[in-house]
Write a protein that binds this DNA or RNA. Structure first.
Ligand SMILES: [Mn+2]
Ligand SMILES: [Mn+2]
Ligand SMILES: [Mn+2]
Ligand SMILES: [Mn+2]
Lengths: 228, 228
DNA sequence: TAGTAAAATTAGGCAACCCTAAATACGGCA
DNA sequence: TGCCGTATTTAGGGTTGCCTAATTTTACTA
């Protein structure tokens, strides 16, 4: 009776769905330890929860084989993702948050807002397609814009690029990226690229910055042309 | 260790503090059944929780005698009340909510917003002193404006009044009040007042409305003068 | 194909909260 | 003063979610 009627997901469940969605985006089922690591929980906690989620029909679970979301689970994940990203956009646009500080606030609010509030925020912003990190905002029907963009280290030396998307939720990483003058929309030129996963050197305006490969891979850019 | 460091209160605890604050405003300790009724819980649940809150130093509890908030508990209650009322004000001012529909949304959001967000919302609104229902918004230091105002049934026939405050959280009551054309700020004239807790008849613009005594008592007004 | 290290699950617990049923305390009245 | 109804607490349970320690499974390697 509860399972059929209650459409409400708990905060924990919503965060699990988001995590599993993010992990499985990479093309493989989410393993227990990946989920545990993502959510900062112990593997046994994940094992237990995953069983409950499977019972609720939110994911398919094969012991020792990892999990994948069902259509219902994916719908849930996309709903929360929409909430999260609209909240982030709203906080930045209307309440003066910096793009590298909104994530935490959204992480809590996403579980407390109503559908009505989300749609009002979206309307107030003109129904944006991307959040402040360049992540596409799922539409109410679950579809979303796909930003096909290039990791910064893959851009050839001499090319000019625009940073589109920062694929990180880590506050320290985001703060660091912001501190070197990068944010979605920033235009830069690749000055040098070390081989063997070495760092990328870029010029932003008249300052040069060196970005390690690990961080650089999270920066998704559009190549905007040759630079004399 | 947990009790001393962790300043975070759970959603439940925050709602208990608000309830107890509201009840004890009336001048007497809050009884178990009053709290249970206010929060829609069973008395045993309240008995149990109240013990936990006393251990956390949020209230003083004498079995069978009711509870009263400690200074710490009152601080907590006022913090949530500030959050709740600023959220209500923001939703009405900036996101097009009607004053009779914001309460529920605020009831959830109040537990999820950070101090930073609340202060940004308050700043965006110019640090208002009252929420959309006319309730005073506690300031960060815990002080608040005191609206000394008159219950509608106490206004003499022929007097003009301004509705200042609607002392109800009940969605149906609020909707009804809104439906007869009343909201904080509405000017009206008392046309008739039945004795023995009978209804009040008022004129708003050119329509007359009859308000029962129970509802009328929740409507706090300022008498603005004689009306020819 | 046996051996093993890593990954995952099971076992056993705990804290927060809520509930119903049963027992008990309180306060007013006869 | 003693009885009685009401308010309150205690007893006993349930769910969600998280944890550590122990066990089991898997997959890889020798
Ligand atoms: Mn979250
Ligand atoms: Mn984002
Ligand atoms: Mn609440
Ligand atoms: Mn209010």
């Amino acid at each position: 009776m509860t399972a059929l009627t209650a459409d409400e997901l708990t905060t924990s469940v919503e965060d699990y769905l988001k995590a599993i969605y993010a992990i499985t985006r990479q093309g493989h089922p989410a393993t227990t330890s990946e989920i545990a690591h993502w959510l900062n929980l112990s593997p046994p906690s994940v094992s237990g929860m995953v069983k409950r989620l499977a019972e609720q029909g939110l994911l398919e679970y094969q012991p020792y084989k990892g999990v994948e979301l069902t259509a219902k689970g994916r719908r849930g994940a996309l709903t929360i993702l929409r909430r999260h990203r609209i909240i982030e956009a709203y906080l930045v646009e209307r309440l003066g948050y910096s793009w590298d500080s909104v994530h935490q606030e959204a992480e809590r609010l996403e579980h407390a807002v109503s559908e009505v509030l989300i749609e009002r925020m979206a309307d107030a912003l003109g129904n944006p397609e991307f959040d402040p990190h360049g992540d596409p905002i799922p539409r109410p029907d679950g579809s979303m814009a796909e930003a096909t963009s290039t990791p910064m280290p893959d851009i050839e030396v001499g090319q000019e690029g625009v940073l589109h998307q920062v694929r990180s939720n880590d506050a320290e990483q985001l703060r660091f990226i912001a501190s070197v003058g990068l944010k979605p929309g920033t235009v830069f030129t690749v000055v040098a690229q070390q081989p063997f996963h070495g760092p990328t050197t870029i010029r932003i305006g008249d300052t040069e910055q060196v970005i390690g490969h690990e961080l650089g891979s999270l920066l998704r850019c559009e190549v905007s042309g040759e630079q004399g």
